[in-house]
Design a protein around this nucleic acid. Structure first.
Lengths: 341, 341
DNA sequence: CTGAAAGCGCTTACAG
DNA sequence: CTGAAAGCGCTTACAG
């Protein structure tokens, strides 16, 4: 490895000057700068970022810790990368896939996060008590609902209102037996609870009765879970004529189940999801969904984090990001192109 | 920040001993160990990984640099994370989305990779010449085809054979006008060329003529590109009765175009993809595809990298991973459930 | 504008 | 089994 010392020797200057040139500091004589540059190139010097980080006290690196197995998150990650770049930081993604073990690595003693200036974290498997455990050395911003008991900065979407809007939209179609898919078997985050709450509120506002049989539980938020839940719902005595899934992935699974059993969507059963992932814009029929403002989420998360990096030690803050209902073919009788010609 | 010095002072030992305890070295008296542990907990010590990495000369971190906007890669990334964990390394993902600018950050002087022991890299936008530029400080393993001119370790799948198998499968259905979707407008990696070659070989083996009009070019490998290419193919004088897309994402886009225009799949047009992403197992119809052995790719990439980390300085090696044709509904007349009941 | 030197927090031969 | 000390490669007041 070529060090600044090697370069300094070759250029006949001190490491101080080499460092100045490498970091583009002013106050270096043009002649000196040229000589150092020459030596830099000749030797093929590249800085050791570990050493630089140690000396500077910060690495310029931010960890984005999230479950990459759900498209919503990797779509979101692109926005976070861009917003971080814009602010001079580099994002490195640490994929947990919601596994508590991997998430725990974040709060454990020999925490990989120690090389990061800050962390943007979307906890799935970990509850608040465990999160609280973490020392406050590295600032953390949570994405999504606050795990019970944790007190950290976070950015969230109003899940209750969004779920209510999605359900109301299904009600507006004249459907009466509207199922909800996504209540986890064992609840950890509050996301699902909030969406169930929004679902119930919409029902209530429309004067529909709430039928517990129409709330399908899941173990995970993947396609397979949506497909399985839909199968169970269809086998009930009084199957649903619409279904609101707590994410698009499950909605796509439900869609698959419906179509493969010969149901027409939306004629027989209307389907709505949550997340606005790209898949839902290309499925047949295309998927009605709630679109959280991913760009805004990313931007707010970075802003919260940078506030902490700048030394703010105030109480935890919560930023709220917008969302929008996106009606598409899966809830629109008129245009179901798969059957329209 | 609590340092080992603080802990040493509190426990009444030297930092040497603290370090020994933190790293679980043997030869620490039980009594001493207990006392140090006590101090560690009391102060809430967490190691500074930057400093440790600098002192040890390695960080235990490996960068996985790839385009996360394509599901194939984030599915692959999970396998890489697991294979790395198994070998005691931590993967951090650096998403490039195929943008040459971001890929270039990897070969630039102030390379973020300097904190990594090694790099697993899937170049999309960068050609071989630029890759060659990078100094050999940090070992690199390439995923996929070798960019022209680069000489680095890599793991690849036999694209020619796999594409030939997929095309032959379509021919076996009795189709005569088989289109190929995925030849990039401006070619950089060899992947697409190889798949086109396999496609042509299958045609030739079956005695079909090669019609250049049936090879649709794309600018990217996303759904939108597949959808657009399909639209153009359908507008031709003699539209295809089957289409082989160079990845599943484009195949899903093509599928969407076909269904929305009222074509039946596979009755009117059969569709095959490449990658075996999860979406294709839940689309309607489900998608026939080539499934590269992702687990094997990940495992081989890690093995190649670790060989270099262990000091092997031999010539670049190429590992070959397996693949398998997965026939599904999009090429199977019998079972197209969307229309079967 | 540039040098000599301390320091970032850790690891690890070298002694004992 | 443990201490004193050098060193990892960089940055940066302090002088000049």
């Amino acid at each position: 490895m070529v060090t600044q010392r090697d370069v300094a020797k070759l250029a006949g200057v001190s490491v101080r000057t080499v460092s100045n040139v490498v970091n583009d500091y002013t106050y270096v004589a043009e002649e000196t700068r040229a000589r150092v540059r020459q030596a830099l190139d000749e030797l093929g010097y590249r800085p050791n970022l570990l050493a630089r980080g140690l000396a500077r006290g910060r690495s310029g690196l931010i960890a984005l810790v999230l479950p990459l197995d759900v498209p919503y998150f990797y779509e979101l990650s692109e926005y976070v990368v861009v917003e971080a770049e814009r602010r001079g930081y580099t994002i490195l993604i640490d994929r947990t896939d919601g596994q508590a073990t991997r998430e725990r690595a974040l709060v454990s003693r020999t925490d990989r996060s120690a090389i990061f200036d800050g962390i943007i974290f979307s906890p799935i498997g970990l509850g608040g008590p465990e999160l609280r455990y973490r020392t406050a050395d590295t600032p953390v911003v949570l994405l999504g609902e606050k795990p019970v008991g944790a007190s950290l900065d976070r950015v969230q979407v109003d899940d209750v209102a969004a779920a209510e809007a999605a359900t109301s939209h299904l009600i507006g179609l004249g459907r009466h037996r509207i199922a909800a898919v996504g209540q986890p078997v064992k609840a950890r985050s509050q996301t699902a609870q909030h969406r169930t709450l929004g679902y119930q509120r919409a029902l209530q506002a429309a004067g529909h009765e709430f039928d517990p049989d129409l709330v399908a539980t899941v173990t995970d938020f993947h396609r397979a879970d949506g497909a399985l839940a839909m199968t169970r719902l269809l086998e009930a005595r009084r199957p649903p004529d619409a279904v609101f899934c707590y994410n698009d992935l499950m909605a796509l699974g439900a869609l698959r189940t419906l179509l493969s059993k010969g149901y027409r969507v939306p004629e027989d059963v209307a389907v709505a999801g949550f997340d606005d992932i790209e898949d839902g814009r290309y499925s047949t029929p295309t998927l009605t969904t709630v679109a959280p403002d991913k760009q805004q989420i990313a931007s707010q998360a970075m802003d919260l984090l940078i506030r902490r990096l700048d030394g703010d030690a105030g109480p935890p803050k919560t930023a709220r990001a917008g969302w929008q209902l996106m009606p598409r073919e899966s809830t629109s009788i008129r245009s179901n192109p798969g059957h329209s010609l």
